[in-house]
Write a protein that binds this DNA or RNA. Structure first.
Length: 293
DNA sequence: GCAAGCCTGACC
DNA sequence: GGTCAGGCTTGC
């Protein structure tokens, strides 16, 4: 699933192969993946040049320049869970679930957006719309300072697992790297952010950085659908220590890895290395009783 | 039936 | 305003 390291890998690919390309024609197959009207989307992009590509959290942004210097636009891409962005020859057979094609001037290559589950979204935004979107995200998980990270943890309740995945707190983590970072930091996914000690908070900050850095070096994790713009899978899969390892031995202490659903998302952790804080049982009492049978 | 990111809406 | 459940989607 595309999280920060996968999006970063796609970004680097786009920087290599798309910068300076003019987009001559846009074809939208499934309007459901476009925010707004598909026609507006197409006309907003056609005839413009990819001037820059960037990323914040899991959001990819291509800055588009017009022939006339004044009219800029931004192609904003969110990959959802199965979204793929590829750049290939126009002649390459089109795979099923390819929803958008953008042909580059010259007629040889095109950018394709494929998304089996259609949770991904593409939009053409003005600078104002882009700024608003980016402002709704917390600092990028690779840019955030330790001070900002610890500050954002204060005054937040609920589970630290949910906190890590909340893009308004820190942008870029999804289920895989949240589980891996918590394991690295030896913090239970149900620990409460505002009750985590400064030392543990710092451990978590460092764990997030370490896990993301390594995952980017290995071009991300291909659990199912993820591929980069040239169609290659990532290489981080063998490095996963707890994600989807239910019942397998913990790589540190050999205890059996457990799975637990938190806020509707499966969480994987070692019950021995990541101790459940006592506060959780006390705080959660009333809510636990309401839980469905 | 499960997996996931993100949005909406219910609840306190 | 924070917190969380539910729904979207489809291949395994």
């Amino acid at each position: 699933m595309p999280e920060l390291p996968e999006v970063e890998t796609v970004l680097r690919g786009l920087q290599k192969s798309c910068l300076g390309q003019w987009i001559s024609q846009v074809e939208v197959g499934h309007p459901g993946v476009i925010v707004g009207k598909p026609e507006t989307f197409a006309t907003g992009i056609e005839g413009r040049q990819i001037a820059a590509v960037s990323r914040k959290g899991k959001v990819l942004v291509a800055e588009l320049a017009g022939r006339d210097n004044a009219d800029e636009a931004f192609l904003v891409m969110r990959l959802g869970m199965t979204g793929q962005v590829t750049v290939e020859a126009c002649a390459t057979p089109v795979e099923p679930h390819t929803h958008v094609r953008m042909q580059f001037e010259g007629g040889e290559k095109e950018l394709r957006f494929r998304d089996v589950r259609r949770f991904g979204r593409l939009r053409c935004s003005t600078r104002g719309e882009l700024d608003a979107l980016l402002a709704s995200l917390g600092p990028d998980a690779r840019q955030v300072t330790e001070k900002e990270f610890l500050l954002a943890m204060r005054s937040r309740r609920g589970a630290v697992k949910s906190w890590l995945m909340n893009q308004q707190m820190v942008a870029g983590l999804g289920n895989i790297y949240a589980d891996e970072a918590l394991f690295e930091a030896r913090i239970h996914p149900l620990a409460q952010p505002d009750r985590i000690s400064a030392a543990a908070g710092r451990r978590l900050y460092k764990a997030v950085r370490k896990v993301l850095k390594k995952a980017i070096e290995l071009q991300g994790t291909s659990f199912r659908d993820y591929i980069d713009i040239e169609g290659r899978p990532g290489n981080y899969l063998p490095k996963l220590r707890v994600y989807q390892k239910t019942g397998k031995p913990c790589p540190r202490c050999r205890s059996s890895i457990r799975r637990m659903v938190i806020a509707g998302r499966s969480s994987h952790f070692c019950p021995r290395c990541q101790r459940r804080p006592r506060q959780v049982a006390e705080m959660r009492g009333p809510r636990d009783r309401q839980a469905k049978p």
